[in-house]
Computed example of a mutant assay.
Amino acid sequence: MRNLGHIFRDIRMDKGYSLKDIADGILSVSFLSKFERGDSDISLSKFYLLLERLNITFDEFSFISNDYNPTQVETLMKNVRNAYENNNINLLYKLEQEEIYKWKKYNFSSHRYNSIMISALAYDLNKQLELYQEDITLLNEYLFKVENWGFYEIMLFGNSMSILPIESIITFSKEILNKTQLYSRVKKNKEKLIRVLLNTIVYCIESNRPSSALHFIISAEKILERHSDLYFEKVKLLYLSGIYKIISGNSDVGIVMSNRAIKIMDALGDINAVNNHEIYLRKKIVFSNTANPN
């Protein structure tokens, strides 16, 4: 990775700003010049102010400083997502073993947690795979220990739900708003958070916990009220709210709500989502009719 000062200088010059343009009111021109040459370090607070003056986000700067490549975690998750979406358990196993190898080689705990997350996704595809209680316990302990969840912890929890007991899912999901408060203004964290809550609602419905499902529906609604751009999440919540109505005995209203969401998915051309959600809706209607016969 190149020196941060050199990268900053390249961006500044590419945007046509002078040293004085960027330094004014933040630090001296001479100090900024030393930073750009790599002769001086700079505090994080000052660095963020300089990035704002340069009209560039920290994520953009990190991307450039990594030679326009995604981070290791981003690359891992892209590969994991592709394997999961294509039901490629062999590739998931390969990625899991690579993370275990890195953990043993570098003794860095995140690689261990990554391997558990990948095994959880594989288990979600094939419930015949073996689970290790040691892994579940280790994951639980880590998530309980971390007070302030960033994107990594939200991702880790969201992708590992299939191996956690419903009690842990409900507990973590109830705490997640408090645990993520420190990073609540980070957009991608908020998007990941709401998707975790949506998954929690599904797990509550499948575990016959309607009161818990309602709790998270209300929590998700409050978040989405403040984020008008999260269209997918709003459609998914409408669908799940309909499913909740169905399993709670209000089938007529629930079916209308869920079908409305499916029609939106259809209008957007997401055929796979339409088919999957129609199948799940029919299953819940049949279950509701069986559980509550006329």
Rank of each mutant, 00 (worst) to 15 (best):
E60C: 09
L198F: 03
G249D: 09
G269E: 07
L138D: 14
L238S: 14
L92S: 00
N140P: 03
K192R: 15
F8C: 03
L237R: 03
K104S: 13
S219M: 15
E221D: 12
E141K: 13
K15C: 07
F47S: 06
F151N: 04
H227N: 15
A122V: 00
D14P: 02
Y113M: 12
T137Y: 10
Q133V: 07
S30C: 11
A267N: 10
I42N: 01
D21R: 05
H6N: 13
N250L: 08
N259S: 12
N66R: 13
K234P: 04
T75R: 15
T137S: 15
K78M: 09
I136T: 10
K192C: 05
E60F: 05
R282E: 15
C204L: 03
T71R: 06
D229M: 09
A122H: 00
Q133N: 15
E233A: 07
L268N: 12
F61G: 08
E60N: 08
L240W: 05
V274Q: 01
V196S: 03
S168V: 04
M155Y: 04
K20C: 06
S119I: 01
D67M: 10
S248V: 07
L54F: 07
A267V: 13
S212K: 08
C204S: 10
S207C: 07
I100F: 02
L237Y: 01
D14G: 14
P70I: 04
G269I: 03
N199I: 03
Y239F: 14
D10H: 09
L4R: 11
Y48N: 14
I89P: 00
Y203S: 05
S40H: 12
L268S: 13
L238W: 06
N292H: 13
E98Q: 14
V256R: 11
Q128Y: 09
L19M: 14
N69H: 11
E134R: 13
G150T: 09
S18L: 12
K15P: 04
F35D: 03
A83V: 01
N276A: 15
K105N: 15
E225I: 14
R37T: 08
G16L: 05
R9W: 05
L44F: 13
F31I: 09
L240S: 04
I89C: 02
T75H: 14
N276F: 05
I176D: 00
N88C: 03
R209N: 15
R209P: 01
K283R: 15
H277R: 09
S62G: 14
R185L: 15
I100R: 06
H227W: 11
L143N: 05
I246W: 01
I205P: 01
S228P: 12
D67G: 07
A120S: 14
K284P: 01
L129N: 02
G249C: 06
T75K: 14
N3P: 07
L131T: 11
I136N: 04
F35H: 01
D135C: 09
I262N: 04
L95K: 02
